[in-house]
């Protein structure tokens, strides 16, 4: 949501960046660690006004978020023991769990499979028995091995996750070279 807003503001209205420069900027923001919108805003701030521009852009981006989520957390804490809120939270926790499972599928789409799981084609196959996938769908074996290993290690052992992630990156880059 933030990226289109940045584009209309800085490319179309104020014209400090060309469309091409903006595309480059987004590519860098996606490649570097951290939230994409955060990176993009910091970069634009730097281009506009150097170090202080970068600092004020990132502060401007996080301040409303801090304020809103602190308010939400404090309100939740205050009302936690009200019977209505207990029921509401109980249900919403199951919803949140559903969201985590959905996120697992999204991540599998991005890493283990060659393309997003073709749910529509599967649904079409189940209802009309016509198999018409819109792309070549296959499993990337090295990525699958890494994912399964990471899953089992997290479930069965207490190995910290961040070193595991770094190792996966090194191994994967090393296999290629």
């Amino acid at each position: 949501m933030i990226i289109p807003f940045l584009m209309t503001t800085f490319v179309e209205e104020r014209q400090v960046l060309t469309l091409n420069e903006f595309g480059n900027l987004i590519a860098i923001a996606q490649m570097t660690p951290g939230a994409v919108s955060m990176n993009a805003s910091t970069y634009i701030g730097f281009l506009e006004n150097g170090f202080w521009g970068a600092l004020s852009a990132s502060l401007g981006l996080i301040c409303p978020t801090i304020f809103l989520s602190l308010t939400a957390v404090l309100m939740l804490n205050k009302w936690k023991d009200k019977p209505w809120i207990t029921g509401l939270l109980k249900g919403a926790r199951l919803g949140a769990l559903g969201m985590i499972i959905y996120a697992c599928f999204i991540f599998m789409d991005m890493s283990v499979f060659s393309m997003p799981i073709p749910w529509q084609s599967i649904w079409l196959f189940l209802t009309t028995a016509v198999w018409k996938p819109d792309g070549v769908f296959f499993v990337l074996v090295p990525e699958l091995i890494i994912a399964i290993t990471a899953c089992l290690l997290t479930l069965k052992t207490k190995i910290p996750i961040i070193p595991m992630i770094i190792m996966a990156g090194i191994i994967s880059g090393y296999i290629y070279s």
């Binding site: 599998m108 890493s111 090295p142 990525e143 994967s172």
Partner: peptide, 8 residues
């Protein structure tokens, strides 16, 4: 590789 690990 990192994405696959995060998935798992």
């Amino acid at each position: 590789g990192i994405r696959a690990c995060v998935t798992g």
